[in-house]
């Protein structure tokens, strides 16, 4: 589904991505871990072209999306993204947050968009909060609305950029539950997260990125329990107790 070859990105002097190669198959849940500053967020943002890579290619279902001829808006319709800081539009209700993309980007009729939005909000368990404004929702609820918003676009791939890092502990569970259900339903997901429990239980593939390159990847048991690379071992020892 997603193939990344030789991705490079620098910000001024800082060479963040130094040749990333990655494959994610359809229906696979890929969990990206690594020290902060290793380029995980940058990588995610390259996949939906929020950031333009300097070098390298990204293929979405055999379409080379790094081709400058391709409109980024088209790519972003296929790729859904959930942010660490939710980024809900504060001046719109939960329902309108979800319908915005449907009406403006997909050009749906208002009624159809509303139905779809309610469906997605039910899917994340927030049918009773459709008319609430983001300020009236808890962190966990806001993030679930953000997930519904991304799902409503019927993306082929869902990207999660540390979706629970900004949440109070009591809300992490509800968001992870939604993500787990999504994974079980067969959504292709790339998740950057520090939630090792989620990675171990739900991920098909764990990828360690350090200093802009993929250090090691494999099934969770391999990476967590039998890391082969030195840096993987170092990282794991720091985060697993």
């Amino acid at each position: 589904m997603i193939r990344i070859r030789g991705l490079h990105k620098s910000f001024g002097e800082l060479h963040v991505l130094r040749g990333i190669d990655l494959d994610v198959s359809q229906g696979e849940v890929s969990c990206i871990v690594g020290p902060s500053g290793s380029g995980k967020s940058t990588l995610l943002r390259c996949i939906n072209l929020l950031i333009e890579p300097d070098r390298g290619d990204i293929f979405l279902e055999e379409v080379r999306i790094t081709d400058p001829q391709i409109r980024p808006e088209w790519v972003r319709q296929q790729v859904g993204m959930v942010f660490q800081s939710f980024n809900l539009l504060t001046h719109l209700t939960a329902l309108r947050n979800v319908t915005l993309g449907l009406t403006k980007v997909k050009g749906m009729e208002a009624a159809a968009a509303r139905d779809k939005a309610i469906f997605e909000l039910e899917r994340v368990g927030l049918a009773h909060k459709v008319d609430a404004y983001p300020a009236q929702l808890s962190g966990g609820q806001q993030q679930r609305v953000a997930i519904a918003r991304a799902l409503a676009m019927d993306p082929k791939v869902m990207l999660f950029d540390e979706p629970t890092s900004a949440l109070d502990p009591e809300y992490i569970r509800e968001v992870l539950d939604v993500m787990t259900t999504l994974a079980n339903e067969g959504m292709t997901m790339i998740v950057v997260s520090h939630e090792m429990g989620f990675a171990r239980n739900v991920a098909d593939d764990v990828v360690l990125i350090d200093e802009g390159v993929v250090v090691e990847r494999g099934p969770p048991e391999d990476i967590f329990d039998r890391p082969t690379h030195e840096r993987t071992r170092a990282f794991m020892s720091k985060i697993l107790r």
Partner: peptide, 12 residues
């Protein structure tokens, strides 16, 4: 972040 999110949804 909201502008990012809007772009991520595919808004021009």
């Amino acid at each position: 972040g909201q502008i990012e999110a809007a772009y991520a949804m595919g808004l021009t």
